[in-house]
Amino acid sequence: MANEINKDENNEKISKKRGRPKGSHSLTAKELSDEEAVTAGPIKVCPSCGSTDILYDSERGELVCNNCGLVIEDEITDTGPEWRAFDSDQRNSRSRTGAPMKYTRPNKGLVTEIDLYNKDIRGVRIPSKRQAQLYRMRKWHKRASIASSSERNYLIALPELTRVSSYLGLPENIREQAALMYRKCVQNNLIRGRPIETVVQAVIYASCRKAGMPRTLDEIANISGLPKKEIGRAYRAISHELNLKIPLTDPISYVPRYINSLKLSGEAQEKAIELLKEAMKKGLVSGRSPTGVSAAAVYIAGALAGERRTQKEVADVAGVTEVTIRNRYRELKEQLNIDVNL
């Protein structure tokens, strides 16, 4: 009881020192909720008396020692929410910000859109006289949002980028990276003299290699319907002008795709990766197509695991010829001393 009385007296002394009313309410750092503790920061030690009994005044944005009355820190920015939440569901459902910025959208997702449903917020259909006005608003809104040539360029290129990425099964982070790379190409005038679609396929190819999920030029050319040589030429120009540090394609990165397409087990995948690691140590991969070496390793691993697949099946999945698989298979078998009969 005596301790509580002394504590109340200390609070009154501090209130007098800081000029607060006698009945003002402030929480100590120990009494803060989780959300307020994050706002107030870590519990500090008073540099004057060494006490850890720190008072946080949310109205003034100050940290005050509850023992000696020293103002440790002032003008603290309150980054917490400005609403009340009575449970975790309410706290998670409410947010101060809007949708995130996306480079795959022509306006980065930061422009207001007028939909085509002709209904108000309650779902009631808008009268016909009002619909004519909304039609004019949509028309001028669209014209204003694509005023510059670069915005018109994005309106053509980014939907094509999304389409090809969907066919290739690329995740969202690679799509965003490809879109950002394309915007850099537009800013550096690398689009001039080249078809927009060709540059789009080139940035997709570069982003896949940079993220460690490579796709071959043949795959991208088949989906886009563009010549493989033009995509490769645009890729070399972009990587040189933007100074992209793109690593060499690792044959191991193709193994999970081939294993999944051939419906092989995890044991076959582990053996294929082991074979490729040994081949890389002996320099059997340099100067050869990574897809061919990877396909040959998967072909051998399937036989070692008792899940044999034909050369034609592996060749169709990898996009190489059966002759390439046979040649790489003989090299791996001789150099790695693999005892397998196929």
Rank of each mutant, 00 (worst) to 15 (best):
K277A: 07
A296V: 09
A279Y: 10
K281W: 04
E274K: 07
V255T: 05
E270H: 08
I259Y: 15
E267A: 05
L284P: 02
G283H: 04
R257L: 15
I259A: 14
A295W: 02
N260V: 13
Y258W: 10
Y258R: 05
E267V: 05
P256R: 01
G292T: 06
K263M: 10
A272K: 00
L284R: 01
L276W: 01
S261W: 02
G283K: 07
A272S: 14
K271T: 02
A295E: 01
P290H: 06
Y254K: 02
I259P: 13
K277M: 03
G283Q: 01
G266P: 10
S265H: 03
L276Y: 01
R257I: 15
E270D: 13
A295G: 11
A279C: 04
A295N: 09
S294G: 15
M280N: 14
L264Y: 08
I259N: 15
V255L: 00
Q269R: 05
L262H: 12
R288D: 11
A296M: 11
R288Y: 13
I259C: 09
A279N: 12
A297K: 00
K263L: 11
K271Y: 11
G283E: 14
I273H: 03
E267C: 06
E274Y: 04
A279H: 09
S294V: 09
R257H: 09
L276D: 03
K282E: 08
A268Q: 04
A297V: 12
K282T: 12
L262F: 13
N260T: 13
R257K: 15
L275S: 03
E274D: 14
G287D: 03
V293D: 02
V255K: 02
Y258P: 02
K277H: 09
S294H: 04
E278Q: 14
V285S: 03
K263Q: 14
S294D: 10
K277D: 08
L284F: 09
A297E: 12
A296Y: 12
P290V: 05
V293I: 15
L276N: 06
V285H: 01
S294P: 14
G287S: 03
L262Q: 11
K263A: 10
A296G: 11
A297R: 11
K277L: 08
Y258N: 07
P290Y: 12
K277I: 01
E274F: 09
K281G: 07
Q269W: 00
K271M: 15
Q269Y: 02
